[in-house]
Design a protein around this nucleic acid. Structure first.
Length: 747
DNA sequence: GGTTTTCACGTTACG
DNA sequence: CGTGAAAACC
């Protein structure tokens, strides 16, 4: 690398960033505050390793926590390194471990065709294990048992280890179910997400030569979002880098918001102890936020006891004050948000994708969605049910898994009667039991059944099925076998079509009366679209990698990026790692943020404060903290006091909202049962020019398409239009200033 | 065996 | 209020 090239790489970095980039050998801890250019530093560091030290990209590994982060890193690396970037391993711990285990898992008796089990599969196994252990799922919810087991696994505890650590009644119960759960899991050649990690560690322990191989493979290893790693993940990073010690971890303890998912903050706090000689770099200059926003956020987080002080600063301008506002209820809260978005769009040149509305719990999105529809603002709801977790997608995946491997019993059990084809629960249970009594897989049992019922070999019990059952079961077997025969001659999308048609799945959705049948078909279509990445390869080749990808990359479509204009609605947890010029945080109330469930626990309360901190530090230019005087939770109206976190932020960073968000006066005092801000009363009617449209006009909207104006109603400084759109959009009420309707033809 | 009704429950959600 | 899963029904 020439001096110039090196200078170019380091150019524009501040001294701390430079140090982090240039310190490539030995353990390195980067404590990076929000907006400090963390991702940039990591990618530049990798480029530096490659360019300047001549390290082959194949010897560099970068592990992150989410596919989203991995994807972003890969695209940045491509930008810096071009084609060489694809040799760099940039992915999640889970995908790394899956690769290692597929390749070398045999050494610990793991068959290479193991199946990765997701939450639903796990829950199913837990329920079965509870039946075996005779535990009542009413008294002990399977979900919490699963959490306990998962927590133990992520701390690398075996059932025995769990017993040693704690020995109450509940712990013993968990231990017993744990054992059965693992037994059921290995019987179906399943591996859950925790196993991917723990079995990799087991492999490293049992097969030192394999560990040595990966130590030589990853001469340099980097871990992003280190504060989110659990014990098992840290252990893997430790093992791989224990020879060359070129381990670099990047994180921010103040943004640790996943303890409930077994992330262990001690990982980052004890890193220096675990790796003597660690160099620590603090990235404390913030390039994202105005100094007002950063100042407010710093004040908030400094109220936490358990933390390392970071001394963040920014050279950015002061900017506007942080706006706090109280609405009467969540509908008005949403309305305030949209009105302010409208104002900022109109007066200050922001566009829709500059905004994000974020909240603590998903249920809060409803009021916001409704307001968006009302105002005709296109929005994108991030989160909710994950794509690969939707029932129809999982059903289809199960079919595909079955084609790939007909002995995959969980998948078989899932789809044998989907759509309903007369094979009920009892028949399935009998099939499994019968196969079990013969010690053969269910698929073999089906083949036996199809072969010839009268010629079952001696010593084998006759099948327990009546002729009708036999007919249905054999019909299913034939379906699977016919589809399997298609594998070599079809590409994936075609195969998927074939599955949907031959199984009757598509038909059943088309005939379905359910309101969301249409959405399901859309999802299946989208799934088929994803499979088009594997075109030109016969399905027999592409099915396995495709399914592996589906199991590991359960990431929904990447956020932002495209040119489309929409408003983003997202939870505070999911917003981590993103940034927006204008951020609205709704539900800044005691009971919502911090959440009720954490009020009595100081540690959890500190995590809630970190959640608020993460939200606030996403903002570049403007930050709004909204709360609602009344809020409907579970149908019942509740009243929450303002968030206690507001008390941690000094007044001079804040601006009360009345004058800004509301043209009306703020008369009523802070106490009593009245809101500071009346509903939508008493706003002066100021007309914004003559009516833009008349009933009967044909118009066009960017999102909803063509429509006809039904009504045009005067509103404060605006017009509310009622428009009937063609197709699915139907009738919408829109604000003129927002909707940007184009006139197609006069009435 | 399949469909409808009732009932209980409710934070956040990575792979 | 809205959802998913078990129980009751056909």
């Amino acid at each position: 690398m020439t001096q110039q090239a090196r200078d170019a790489l380091l150019d524009g970095l501040n001294p701390a960033q430079r140090q982090a980039v240039e310190h490539v050998n030995g353990p390195l801890l980067i404590v990076a505050g929000p907006g400090s250019g963390k991702t940039r530093v990591i990618t530049h560091r990798i480029a530096y390793l490659n360019h300047y030290l001549g390290i082959r990209p194949g010897n560099i590994g970068a592990v992150t926590f989410t596919n989203r982060a991995a994807k972003e890193m890969r695209s940045r690396l491509e930008h810096l390194l071009g084609d060489r970037a694809r040799y760099i391993t940039a992915g999640t711990f889970h995908s790394l471990c899956a690769q290692i285990l597929r390749h070398d898992g045999k050494a610990i008796g793991l068959p290479p065709e193991f199946v990765i089990m997701d939450d639903d599969d796990q829950l199913g196994l837990i329920k079965r294990a509870m039946v075996i252990c005779e535990v009542d799922p009413k008294k002990f919810p399977p979900r919490s048992i699963l959490n306990a087991i998962s927590s133990a696994k992520s701390r690398l505890l075996t059932p025995e280890g769990l017993a040693q650590r704690a020995s109450g009644y509940y712990d013993d119960l968990v231990r017993r179910i744990f054992i059965e759960y693992q037994a059921l899991m290995s019987r179906s050649r399943g591996v859950d997400f925790d196993d991917l990690l723990s079995r990799t560690i087991e492999l490293f322990r049992e097969a030192p030569e394999t560990l040595a191989k990966y130590q030589e493979r990853f001469l340099y290893l980097m871990v992003d979002e280190f504060q989110d790693t659990n014990i098992a993940q840290y252990e893997i990073a430790k093992q791989i880098s224990s020879k060359h010690l070129n381990l670099c971890v990047v994180g921010d303890p103040d943004q640790a918001i996943y303890s409930w998912r077994n992330a262990d903050i001690r990982n980052i706090l004890s890193f220096q102890k675990d790796f003597p000689g660690t160099v620590t770099v603090n990235l404390s200059q913030n390039y994202r936020s105005t100094s007002t926003i950063l100042g407010a956020a710093r004040k908030l987080i400094s109220a936490n006891r358990q933390r390392l002080d970071q001394d963040l600063f920014t050279d950015n301008e002061m900017g506007a004050k942080v706006v706090i506002a109280e609405a009467y209820n969540e509908d008005e809260e949403a309305q305030l948000v949209l009105q302010e978005i409208e104002r900022l769009t109109r007066e200050e040149g922001f566009t829709l994708r500059d905004f994000v509305v974020t909240y603590r719990v998903n249920a809060q999105s409803r009021a916001l969605e409704e307001a968006c529809l009302r105002y005709g603002v296109p929005y994108k709801l991030v989160g909710g049910v994950r794509f690969y977790q939707r029932r129809e997608v999982k059903d289809l995946i199960s079919y595909l898994r079955l084609l790939q491997d007909p002995y995959d019993e969980p998948s078989l059990a899932r789809v044998i009667n989907v759509p309903a084809r007369g094979i009920g629960k009892r028949t399935v249970d009998e099939l499994i039991a019968w196969a079990g009594s013969l010690s053969i897989p269910a698929y073999t049992a089906l083949q036996l059944l199809a072969g010839d019922g009268t010629e079952i070999a001696e010593g084998i019990d006759a099948s327990p099925f009546n002729p009708r059952q036999v007919q249905q079961l054999v019909g299913f077997l034939r379906l699977i076998n016919d589809l399997r025969a298609c594998l070599p001659d079809m590409e994936l999308p075609e195969l998927i079509d074939e599955v949907l048609t031959r199984s009757g799945y598509r038909r059943s959705l088309l005939d379905s009366e359910e309101p969301d049948a249409e959405d399901r078909l859309d999802n299946l279509r989208e799934f088929r679209g994803v499979s088009a990445d594997w075109l030109t390869i016969p399905a027999s080749e592409s099915l396995q990698p495709f399914l592996e990808n589906a199991a590991l990359v359960s990431e929904q479509d990447s956020i932002v990026e495209n040119e489309q204009q929409y408003l983003t609605l997202i939870t505070l947890h999911q917003i981590k790692g993103l940034e927006y010029p204008v951020v609205f945080i709704t539900g800044f109330e005691d009971g919502v943020l911090p959440h009720t469930r954490s009020l009595d626990n100081p540690d959890q309360l500190e995590e809630e404060r970190r959640i608020a901190y993460v939200g606030m530090t996403r903002a570049g230019k403007r930050l709004y903290l909204l709360r609602s005087f009344r809020r409907r939770l579970f149908g019942a109206p509740t009243g929450n006091p303002p968030s206690r976190f507001l008390r941690d932020i000094p007044e001079d960073f804040l601006e009360a909202a009345a004058s800004r968000l509301r043209s009306s006066n703020n008369s009523v005092g802070p106490s009593g049962r009245t809101s500071n801000y009346p509903v939508v009363a008493g706003e002066p009617i100021v007309q914004a020019g003559p009516p833009p449209f008349r009933a009967g006009d044909k118009v066009s909207h960017a999102t909803f398409g063509q429509g006809i104006v039904i009504n045009c109603l005067a509103k404060p400084s605006d017009y509310e239009l009622t428009v009937a759109f063609k197709g699915q959009s139907g009738i919408k009420r829109l604000l003129h200033s927002f909707a940007k309707l184009e006139l197609i033809s006069k009435e």
